[in-house]
Amino acid sequence: MYGWIWRHLPGNAWMRALISLVLVLAIVFVLFQYVFPWAEPLLPFNDVTVDQGMGGPR
């Protein structure tokens, strides 16, 4: 998988390393900005109130 990506990146080794770094940073950004904020409420740390499921504000 990673070998396949590496072979399909353009440029010499330095160029490929640079593009790889940018790709990794972009993926981390998308994870922190969009994916984890969506997934985190599914974990139990958000349940701090006593009136959930009572029609109260949640």
């Binding site: 139990p44 740390f45 958000n46 349940d47 701090v48 109130t49 006593v50």
Partner: peptide, 12 residues
């Protein structure tokens, strides 16, 4: 009010 146990949500 807060959650109990520290890392869980079974109690308050």
């Amino acid at each position: 009010t807060t959650c109990e146990p520290e890392w869980g949500h079974s109690h308050r």
